[in-house]
Amino acid sequence: MNQAIENLLQRFGEAVHEWKLVSPNEVHLTVSASHWREVAQYLRDDPLWQMDYPADLTVWDTGNEFGVYLRLWCSVYNRNVIVLTSIPREEPRIASLATLYPGVDWHEREMYDMYGVIFEGHPNLKRILLPDDWEGFPFRKDYVAEPSGNPLHGPQPVN
């Protein structure tokens, strides 16, 4: 584990702002948003890491910025890695991991749905839980839940 972390720090240098070994098989990393995809790819492909299981991905709104949280698991060494980053609220853009981990596809769509975070490079970034014509992003702290903004209507027929 220590060797793996050392390699990671060497490879990314300043991009890894912070790291913390929470338990022998769990590490928390805070990285810069610009290296989001590179770090994830490194964690997946490096033989010392092999984080092959995308467990969770989510976003939260602190009021000043969006935090992004990615949890990975390694089926070989039984390790957990949590990768954190933050992106500005004004321009919430971050690289998509959906092509690396198909499992985060729907998570990213949900976060786009709720927070309006644009995951660049996502193959099918559209609303998933809310109707396609929903106005606004309801999980943002400044969202005004006004029924008149999104009047109710039934599902639209296909073909």
């Binding site: 467990a55 969770d56 939260w60 935090g67 949280y69 949890r71």
Partner: peptide
């Protein structure tokens, strides 16, 4: 795997609750 993720800012209410 059912996972809850919570962010706290020290207040009485959570800042974010995410359900995996």
């Amino acid at each position: 795997e059912l996972s809850f993720m919570m962010v706290s800012d020290g207040g009485a209410n959570p800042v974010r609750v995410h359900i995996r």
